[in-house]
Design a protein around this nucleic acid. Sequence first.
DNA 1: AAAGCTTGTGAAATCGATTTCATAAAATCG
DNA 2: CGATTTTATGAAATCGATTTCACAAGCTTT
Lengths: 337, 337
Amino acid sequence: MPDEPDVKLIDVARKAGCSPATVSRVLNHNAKVNTATREKVLQAAMDLAYVPNGSARSLRSTKSRLAGAVIPTLDHAIYATMVNSLQARLTENGVSLIINTSSYDIDREYEQVRLLVERGVESVVLVGAAHRRETIALLEQRNIAYVFTYTAKPTDIGAAVGFDNEKAGRLAARHLIDLGHTRIAMLGGITINNDRAVSRRDGFVAELRDNNLAPLGILETPYQADGGHAGMKRLMLADTPPTAVICASDIAAAGALKYCRQNDIAVPGTVSVLGFDNLDIGELTTPELTTIDVPAGEMGRIAADYLLAPAAQRQHMRIRELPLRLVVRGSTAALLR
Amino acid sequence: MPDEPDVKLIDVARKAGCSPATVSRVLNHNAKVNTATREKVLQAAMDLAYVPNGSARSLRSTKSRLAGAVIPTLDHAIYATMVNSLQARLTENGVSLIINTSSYDIDREYEQVRLLVERGVESVVLVGAAHRRETIALLEQRNIAYVFTYTAKPTDIGAAVGFDNEKAGRLAARHLIDLGHTRIAMLGGITINNDRAVSRRDGFVAELRDNNLAPLGILETPYQADGGHAGMKRLMLADTPPTAVICASDIAAAGALKYCRQNDIAVPGTVSVLGFDNLDIGELTTPELTTIDVPAGEMGRIAADYLLAPAAQRQHMRIRELPLRLVVRGSTAALLR
DNA sequence: AAAGCTTGTGAAATCGATTTCATAAAATCG
DNA sequence: CGATTTTATGAAATCGATTTCACAAGCTTT
């Protein structure tokens, strides 16, 4: 390997015939530097293919230009899409993003956040509003900006960007009630350590109760096609099968649809199926899925903007509730009597 | 804010009644340190909730425990899944992952890699084998380990983990030829800056030619459902529509399926549709998709293992070709005559 | 033209860890 | 038991940038 000795700032200074301080000035805050000198420095940096040492820079300046995100998984489009736009926006502003996954485990989440703090991140994106006390304490103590996503619960702790999950549950129930359904079941997500799934379920139950109805059954299933498939099977084989089912995600709903197709159960004729998330897949199933849109990309963008904003401004943007949108397609219909 | 002054290593040393050097020893290589002293140090670190300063550490030790990945997008499951397992494996080994997206643009890729180098990453994951010369030069010069994914092209430059894209194209063609099809078209991906799409197309064409056939048409479509939908429309409205279509991804294939459904074109009766990637969605469409499995998760894992391996060992693991697997489901069938 | 500002620059201190080198104390050996 | 090796530790140098402080030279201002 040729492996030339790494070019350092001082080498640039030498080549440009000035002091390291001046090089630093040119390369950073662009403070008062004579134009001729500036040119020489830039030229030298270019010639030497100088790449600054980020560690040294952040050690001295206490600015790392690093952000972190801890999400449940990247294997679900709803999170991957958010991270995609989060990353894009941060990068546009010179901030790099470190990603960690928690598998929906808040203890693991804490460990990951600790690691992020050690790496010197200046801000952190978390999912949901349920976290270990230590996690928040660590961020507060270190004065690291953080924002919760997929939730808009007014909380006295962190800032949040997302939507009201309880409203989402209600909106789903509302739609089915409006269609005349009374035997409504839910294929909910796993609620352990998932405050969002809990809220949606609560909203669902509350809306039913407000209409003098009770849920026909609430099953907890993993957010995967198999889970939706198996859950639908249990529901439809019960003594009183539902005429409408709310699913925790479009993936689960697609699995439910698959079960119905395999067993010649008409959707929406016999049973209406409602998804959640509004993933691409919703337009590709037969029938296409009625679902509730989750603005994942927008959340990522807004979260980024929040974290990029100067601390003073952040005060005014703590809670950002995004509108929920019911997307009506072919998998739900009025109850036949 | 209470904002206690940050605890530094020297504070731990003070509290434990020893020198910073000893604290460092305990916290790192665990070199010969008296057990009693070690306990005291660990206790002190715990009590003070000490979190090491990563910048200082990597500045001095030239070990950042940071890796980077530049992928086209996280908005496509095939990449998100790879990154998910890559990240998991790296984190297990104490390495954090910085993610950047390039939107399939190798100039952008170069910029992102530069940024990664500046952040001090010790290794980098790239997608495909087509990169700017500068990108590779930079990594080589800085002695940063890197690995290409989704490709197994024997290259004199980097290591690679993936599969032979040309074989994949051939495998797809082979399947359809075996089923008796002769009018075969391709809804390929965008080939600009995408060496993998190019290879798959070339393999497809080569296999047809080896069987004295010529492609009925090759359309380039975005890797999205709309693209597959629109492409299928063009193909089926042509003077001689194909009896079989190879799609660039399951998403595009699902879009193609949708077009057929909307226009009462029987699949696989009138036209067979072959997907690529083996995403979850393939099992949720009607009919379910015949597809070629891409071991995205495994690639991420293997890439991580490669990068985590000591440099000496890496020599022996440069190219790792994973097997391709045809997954036959309901969207392809023998040609009716 | 003297006093007071600006502007542009460099010398040296500094960020918080790791690492090298030296050394005291303890253990082993012939 | 004196000589030698081993073990455990600390003092000080160091990584590569940024930042503070000082100061010279060139401009204003009166």
